[in-house]
């Protein structure tokens, strides 16, 4: 891999990864007029013959991917997370159901996307794609992990949906650490026995901030980056449940997202006290990422509040 040590957004990691895997002739890139935003533009610049822009037509893009996949290509299609939802039924019937392997990336996911406002702030994408049999759902937390996990999709034997985000976030993984990540295997970023925070995407950084603050008060929490929402790493969830108190944290609706996925598993295996930090069944609005995340309760402070709520019970 070529080096990118400067901080970036997870969407930059997607763009990096497409170049990393470009030498494999099976790779084709599909765009819906947002390549500059999702960062497939770098692949386009180098490999125009294997890049197809379908215009502002996400439904067509998804199924063109299926046609390419049937003939042995490995399509990587991207648009905004919110518009990936427009192609949901195509993904369901034309990709997931057919067993054809197409990788769809939705960038600018979540409230974190900010000033465009509620029309662009997808907080359902992970939830809906997670309902599809056999579909892998990823939501990396930083540029390096987005890059590494996208590279690994090349040999992944299931179709996938990956959510990336627009804005720069802290580096969670060095390049070397990121290379060791595996799809479907959560990363334990911090050990602790008092409680566990299971987070994804931009909330992983918030979870680490929260863990530092809690530690100063003598509370040691485990922090897990659940970059793969499906298939969910059951061992990691059960490990978290041993602390007896779990907070999930996601820039996504608490209906259907990471919190739901964790709760589904625990309800049937090891019922554990839980709190969910996420979007509480409402739409966002325009604002800076920090403003809107604060308003929606998607912060380290909210995570701390939720941990303390359980520990004082």
């Amino acid at each position: 891999m070529t080096g990118h040590s400067e901080p970036g957004a997870s969407r930059d990691g997607y763009g990096d990864a497409l170049l990393d895997i470009a030498s494999d002739e099976r790779v084709v890139v599909l765009e819906a007029d947002l390549g500059k935003s999702t960062k497939s533009c770098h692949f386009r610049a180098e490999y125009p013959d294997r890049t197809f822009c379908l215009g502002i037509a996400e439904q067509n893009m998804a199924i063109v991917g299926a046609g390419l996949a049937e003939a042995g290509r490995v399509p990587f299609a991207s648009t905004f997370a919110i518009f990936s939802e427009r192609a949901f039924e195509q993904f369901r019937n034309g990709i997931a159901r057919t067993g054809l392997i197409v990788h769809l990336c939705g960038s600018h996911g979540g409230m974190h996307t900010g000033p465009d406002g509620s029309s662009a702030q997808s907080t359902e994408d992970i939830g809906i794609f997670r309902t599809l049999p056999g579909v892998t759902v990823l939501h990396p937390s930083d540029r390096n992990s987005a890059r590494s996990l996208t590279v690994k999709l090349l040999e992944h034997r299931s179709p996938s949906y990956t959510r990336t985000v627009r804005n720069k976030t802290a580096e969670i993984y060095s390049e070397l650490e990121a290379k060791n990540l595996e799809i479907g295997k959560a990363a334990i970023l911090r050990k602790g026995t008092d409680a566990a925070i299971i987070a994804c995407g931009v909330m992983v950084e918030q979870a680490l901030i929260a863990a530092d603050a809690l530690s100063e008060g003598g509370v040691e929490v485990m922090v897990i980056d659940m970059h793969t929402i499906k298939p969910l790493d059951l061992d990691a969830v059960l490990m978290a449940s041993e602390t007896g108190a779990i907070v999930t944290a996601e820039d996504h609706s608490v209906i259907g997202g990471l919190g739901s996925a964790v709760a589904e598993v625990l309800a049937e295996t090891s019922p554990t006290m839980m709190r969910m930090v996420g979007v509480r069944d409402e739409f966002g609005e325009s604002g800076s990422p920090t403003e809107i995340m604060t308003k929606m309760g998607l912060t380290s402070d909210e995570i701390i509040r939720r941990v303390n709520q359980m520990l004082t019970k």
């Binding site: 197809f52 067509n60 063109v64 299926a66 046609g67 049937e70 003939a71 290509r73 034309g94």
Partner: peptide, 12 residues
């Protein structure tokens, strides 16, 4: 969906 799939087949 079929014409979209056909387009993908033809591009391949």
């Amino acid at each position: 969906m079929g014409l979209s799939f056909g387009l993908g087949s033809a591009l391949a």
